[in-house]
Design a protein around this nucleic acid. Structure first.
Length: 588
DNA sequence: GCCGTTTTCGGCCCGACTGTTTTCAGTCG
């Protein structure tokens, strides 16, 4: 395992997981292993960079970081290595840590394979493992057989477990179609997605659905006849798995109505949330499983989730919050946030129409009128057109000014015809590139024509954290800039966000009433939920926008709202929940 | 190794599934 002073959260989490795996091989105490796994999970879900917490001397505030792990990570940031970890890894084959990324391979299996095949090269470990499987070298090892060799081969073929996740909107819509189909069967009493999909995480592994029914057989027989089903992977008394024509598999689980609440709660997770609940139960001398709450010898099962949480002395927790990041404590104290909902949204502040051509990036496909009609049909009271700025290289200042002037006039004309019975306001804005030095890619003269601007980074992603922070601060300091578009620049599955000192950004936003966008575009969902929560704690307001390039994209708003909910956002913390009159004074 | 409105010591979530080692270990959620 490589170690350095500059490790990010993901890498530190993997390092701690590797230590846990190594301990498992070395026969350490089960609880010491779990301690490292817990610390790894805490790092992975931390909204702050661990390095920043270390800078501020707050390492020990991370849950799961006690004296020992704190000291090791302190050593890591001071010296770039941890002597104790190096010692732990010393006797183990480096290739085993690579194998841990293959589904179904845990520490014991990884060690055995790396040690006994053997796999000498960590970089080619997975290819070498595949070769060994194809040559029949795995099934002859003790503890392995024909089946496990085949399973390993299939697992490698299905890519690595951290890469093959679906984007939330894709998974949501896929699940939505199957749910509509299933609802046509009368035996289906209730139906919900499970796991990360129900919690509305930004990426989803598998689609799992649960149905409450008194007649599992009818439901399952109906399920496997789903028109998009390519093959039936398995069907038992209470569950079935089908493979869709698009290559995704879907699991359906049937549950008796009287146990619906209990099972739904269990299968929604998250794992950390459930573990925490069980620890609370243990302290009362109770025990929780997916079958219910066991008190002495009697097991209580619940038809509704609310009853389950009530028994635990809690109010019902929205699935988006179930990550064990304080929601259980909040529920016990009856202080859960009143989360924002889709219907609270009254407008969209990041939309591309076709009015400006020759922009620095892609143009919108629909006319302003068509986009406005769509916004009105969603019940919105306002929107802002934010095409990309005209390309600076291909036009002189006067040409750019003329284009923006023409757009301004067009919008004024639209606003002048707005009737008073259903007020609707269109803002004149742009999405302006933030250059590497933090200046805006639009002449001041043209900027002055705008009501406000959205500023976004579309180039030079690899600046140092310090330079990137300065860049964003400078752009946000411009009086016309009200919104930082897709603030981290991440592209799910493609590109990590750039490194920024968020503390400084939050301070500036708070002080000068600048807003951070949650961009609802499927690959962005940016700000990420953890940073949303951090921003809100600092009193920064957010704005949820779709980045639509045609009028149909306005419907992506619900995914931005999902991110906001996961970030504990209330209507009051989201700018575009404000009504027509308030927003005009805010944004002009 | 961590943690504490019953503990600074003595505990630490629970069960299903799979495959192989005929009674259990490993992995996963």
């Amino acid at each position: 395992m490589k170690m350095s002073k500059e490790m990010n959260n993901r890498q530190i989490s993997n390092l701690l997981k590797a230590v846990a795996a190594a301990y498992e091989i070395n026969g350490e105490s089960r609880f010491r292993i779990v301690a490292y796994e817990n610390a790894a999970a805490a790092v992975e879900s931390s909204s702050s960079e661990i390095k920043d917490l270390w800078d501020d001397g707050q390492l020990k505030d991370i849950p799961g970081f006690g004296p020992s792990i704190t000291a090791h990570i302190d050593e890591l940031f001071k010296t770039g290595k941890v002597k104790h970890f190096a010692e732990v890894f010393k006797k183990l084959p480096p290739a085993m840590f690579v194998l841990l990324t293959v589904p179904g391979i845990g520490p014991k299996t990884a060690y055995k394979l790396a040690h006994e095949l053997p796999l000498k090269n960590a970089i080619t470990a997975i290819e070498d493992l595949k070769k060994a499987a194809l040559e029949g070298k795995i099934r002859i090892l003790t503890g392995f057989g024909q089946q496990s060799q085949k399973a390993i081969l299939e697992a490698i073929g299905q890519k690595r477990k951290d890469l093959d996740r679906m984007l939330l909107p894709f998974a949501s819509e896929l699940a939505g179609q199957i749910i509509s189909y299933l609802k046509q069967e009368k035996a289906v009493l209730q139906i919900e997605p499970l796991g990360s999909l129900r919690r509305q995480a930004s990426t989803i592994g598998d689609i799992d659905l649960a149905v409450a029914t008194n007649n599992p057989k009818i439901v399952l027989d109906y399920f496997v006849k789903y028109p998009q089903c390519k093959s039936i992977e398995g069907q038992g008394e209470n569950s079935a798995r089908i493979m869709l024509k698009n290559g995704r598999s879907v699991d359906l689980l049937t549950i008796l109505p009287q146990s619906w609440g209990t099972m739904l709660q269990h299968l929604t997770g998250s794992k950390q949330h459930n573990i925490h609940l069980r620890e609370i139960a243990v302290k009362k001398d109770w025990s929780i499983s997916q079958y219910g709450i066991k008190i002495k010898t009697k097991e209580f099962t619940y038809a509704q989730e609310t009853e389950f949480y009530q028994k635990m002395g809690m109010s019902w927790i929205p699935p988006e919050l179930r990550e064990d990041t304080g929601e259980i404590e909040a529920s016990l104290q009856n202080s859960l946030p009143n989360l924002i909902q889709l219907q609270d949204i009254k407008g969209d502040f990041h939309l591309h129409s076709d009015i400006l051509q020759n922009t620095s990036h892609d143009t919108g496909l629909d006319s302003m009128e068509k986009v406005i009609a769509q916004a009105k049909s969603l019940g919105y009271q306002y929107l802002a057109f934010t095409e990309h700025n005209p390309s600076v290289n291909n036009h002189n200042v006067e040409q750019i000014f003329a284009m923006i002037q023409a757009k301004k006039k067009a919008i004024e004309s639209i606003n002048s015809t707005s009737n008073n019975s259903t007020p609707f306001w269109v803002f004149n804005s742009l999405e302006i590139d933030i250059r590497a030095d933090g200046t805006l890619a639009l002449p001041e003269k043209a900027l002055n024509l705008l009501d406000f601007a959205v500023a976004s980074v579309h180039s030079s992603f690899n600046l140092s954290k310090k330079d990137m922070t300065q860049r964003l601060l400078r752009a946000l300091s411009h009086p016309k800039v009200k919104i930082l578009g897709h603030p981290t620049g991440r592209m799910l599955g493609k590109r990590e966000g750039y490194e920024v000192d968020w503390d400084k950004i939050f301070s500036l936003c708070k002080k000068f009433n600048k807003y951070l966008e949650i961009n609802a575009w499927p690959e962005r969902l940016d700000l990420p939920d953890t940073l949303v929560r951090e921003a809100l704690k600092r009193g920064v307001k957010i704005i949820i926008s779709t980045d639509s390039h045609d009028s149909g994209h306005l419907n992506l708003m619900r995914y931005g709202v999902a991110v906001a909910r996961r970030g504990w956002a209330t209507p009051a913390s989201v700018v575009n929940t404000a009504d027509y009159d308030t927003i005009k004074s805010l944004m002009k």
